[in-house]
Simulated assay, not measured.
Amino acid sequence: MTTALITGASSGIGRSAAIELARRGSGVILTYDKNKDGADETIVQIEKLGGKAVALPLSVGDSSTFPGFRSSVADALRANWEAESLDFLVNNAGFGGGAAFQDTTEEFFDELMRVLLKGPYFLTQTLLPLIADGGAIVNTTSHSALDVGVEAGFSAYATMKGGVLVLTRYLAKELAPRGIRVNSVAPGPTRTRLGGDAFAKYPELIEPLASRTALGRIGEPDDIGRMIAVLLSGDSAWVTGQNLEVSGGFKL
């Protein structure tokens, strides 16, 4: 059995990826920050499929906790799957938000950096001894970091996600001697809880975005979660260092 760690899997894309990986036979360690109830619901859905999952708390924006978290992951692997290593890592946890360039504060910029860029960078570094040779990593980036995705008001957020794009390529290069593949997915507008659950609060935002999407709707978490699972699987064994836009043709 393979084992996977997915950060930020209490809802949205992370939950979908966790469920899809469990459906494909992986044992799953998922993380949550404040939404423990959501993490528990993810576990319930995985168990309904006959899978096994455990949830661990993690604040991706606080790198001082990472060594202790690695120990918790190692304990969970041994206790639940008699395993010593992870096969898959999905760096997905994060939050969204925007501000005009002239209104972006250092505090907001630094918070985005800690969670969206520094967190995945040093969490991956910390967990690297636990990742099996021949394993795979997928990072969640954003359509906003692509050349075609530029929208006013997201300079800080997109800068961090652009950093993750670059990090993906460098990790693919540096981890290749161990046979570890590293790729990323760039979702377009997707119905998640990002932005304070914006689509639920402001449903009027959906139609304008759907009208700019070639396939005529906004994304659902499962659209992204399934692609993450594909990139981790053996079907993508010859794919590394790539960023895959998963947007239904947004702005095509």
Rank of each mutant, 00 (worst) to 15 (best):
E204S: 10
V138I: 10
Y170I: 14
S247P: 08
P129A: 01
L77R: 04
Y121A: 06
P187C: 10
D235L: 06
T105H: 12
K36Y: 09
R23E: 09
G216S: 13
A132C: 06
A22P: 01
A214Q: 07
A55V: 06
S85E: 15
L117N: 03
T141F: 11
G61N: 00
L231D: 00
P129G: 01
I228D: 10
A9K: 02
A17V: 07
P189C: 03
G162P: 05
I43V: 14
Y170P: 00
Q125F: 08
F199D: 07
P177N: 06
L117R: 04
N139F: 10
G234W: 02
T141S: 14
L5K: 00
D222W: 12
K34R: 15
L30D: 01
E84L: 11
S144G: 14
K52D: 08
P203F: 02
F109I: 02
L130D: 02
A145C: 12
V90H: 00
S16C: 00
D87L: 05
L244G: 06
A158D: 02
V54G: 01
T126W: 03
A18V: 07
P57R: 04
G216W: 13
A22F: 01
A186D: 06
F250L: 14
R78G: 09
S63Y: 12
V44L: 10
V164M: 11
R193Y: 06
T2G: 06
E106T: 12
A172N: 01
K48M: 10
L165F: 11
A176E: 09
L232D: 02
N243E: 15
S233T: 14
M113K: 13
R15Y: 05
A76T: 15
P120A: 05
A145R: 07
P177H: 11
R191I: 05
E207V: 04
N243F: 02
L112C: 15
L231R: 03
Q125D: 12
E41K: 12
L194E: 08
D87E: 14
G38K: 05
K173C: 04
L167M: 15
K52Q: 13
E220K: 09
P189F: 01
V230Y: 15
V90G: 02
I6W: 04
L231Q: 02
F108N: 09
G248R: 08
V239C: 03
A200C: 02
N35D: 08
E84Q: 15
N35V: 11
I228C: 00
R24F: 04
F101Q: 03
T240G: 07
A99V: 11
V44D: 09
F199V: 02
L252Q: 11
T240E: 04
G241C: 03
G25L: 00
V166I: 06
R217N: 10
T2I: 04
T3K: 00
N35L: 14
G135M: 12
T141A: 14
T42S: 07
M227Q: 14
V230F: 15
D33P: 03
T124F: 01
F109L: 12
A74D: 08
E107Y: 10
A229H: 05
A18S: 11
G234N: 10
G50L: 05
V185I: 08
G50M: 06
L5F: 00
S26D: 05
T104Q: 14
R114Q: 15
K34L: 13
I19M: 07
D147N: 07
A229G: 13
V164W: 03
K251S: 11
V150L: 07
G248L: 04
V148Y: 12
L128K: 08
A176P: 02
N243T: 15
F108M: 14
D223H: 14
V44Y: 06
